[in-house]
């Protein structure tokens, strides 16, 4: 790391370096789209779609790009949120007890290799097309447009996708808390209940944050595939499917770009949070 530089100069350098592959990618894309007989849309066509995110796509049976992205993000938020509130407490519980780890290890190792999308047909059978809106508002769900698009079947699949990274990292983080820290806290007057809040969670927080970053990443990967399934009427995955059906590939590529940008922003944000909560760990031995 070049610590001697002015911080602004360092930032500029990092952004500049990071931009080079993007420029190369665009160049390759441009050349490929100009070759004869290609179906690859030109950069300009995709840019045109991206420039009007709120426009109803003319030949597509789909909501505008921005709304589609919002629907997808809502599904991710609820699915990941559900994973967070289940995986962190469970991970802490299992991490604290050796017996619990042995009890759950086999089933977790089996479950986590099952692709989340593999559950899609089953979740549709089990949960039907019920959505957060229909659960909360019944037949008036259509009045709450966006919540009606948050289908429980998809939320469940996203939950599955992000549960295991968060659960496993929390569990390992908690199991790895140094015994000394716990004894120091006990010798300093901490009761068992205070240990959780003042020692176990802060000590495991860096590991939990890694799990969160991986979990969000998996949720973003899985959402598009989950939206290919019937029962969805919106979302980036649905947007892609419909644009394929009418061979308007600029719409498909535009949503790919949106997913990529969302991932970029989310990951950079999570890295920033991660370095804040785990700054003490890099130097700790």
């Amino acid at each position: 790391m070049d610590t001697g530089r002015h911080p602004a100069a360092t930032l500029l350098r990092r952004v500049g370096l990071g931009a080079i592959p993007f420029v190369l990618l665009l160049a390759v894309w441009h050349l490929a789209s100009r070759s004869a007989g290609t179906l690859l849309p030109a950069i300009g066509e995709v840019g045109e779609v991206l420039a009007h995110p709120f426009r109803e796509p003319p030949n597509l049976d789909s909501l505008p790009l921005a709304t589609s992205a919002l629907v997808s993000l809502l599904r991710v938020a609820f699915g990941f949120g559900a994973a967070l509130v289940t995986a962190v407490p469970l991970g802490i519980l299992v991490g604290c007890r050796h017996t619990a780890r042995e009890l759950f290890l086999p089933i977790v190792e089996m479950s986590r290799s099952i692709s989340p999308v593999a559950w899609m047909p089953l979740t549709i059978i089990l949960l039907g097309f019920s959505s957060l809106g229909s659960v909360l508002y019944g037949t008036r769900a259509w009045e709450y447009g966006l919540l009606d698009q948050v289908q429980l079947a998809i939320v469940a699949v996203i939950w599955w996708a992000s549960f295991f990274p968060v659960f496993l990292n929390t569990m390992h983080g908690v199991a790895g808390v140094r015994r000394l820290f716990i004894e120091v806290a006990l010798a300093n007057g901490a009761r068992r209940a205070a240990l959780l809040r003042h020692v176990i969670v802060p000590a495991a927080l860096p590991a939990i944050m890694v799990g969160i970053r991986l979990g969000v990443g998996r949720a973003l990967m899985v959402i598009v595939a989950a939206e290919f399934f019937p029962g969805t009427r919106a979302g980036l995955g649905y947007f892609i499917t419909t644009s394929h059906q009418v061979a308007q590939y600029e719409y498909a590529l535009a949503s790919v770009v949106v997913i990529g940008l969302v991932g970029l922003v989310v990951n950079l944000g999570l890295y920033a949070v991660e370095s804040r909560v785990s700054h003490w760990q890099a130097k700790e031995r």
Partner: peptide, 12 residues
């Protein structure tokens, strides 16, 4: 109590 080295809570 004062322990051997590295007994401070490193996140505090």
């Amino acid at each position: 109590a004062v322990f051997q080295q590295h007994s401070l809570l490193p996140w505090r």
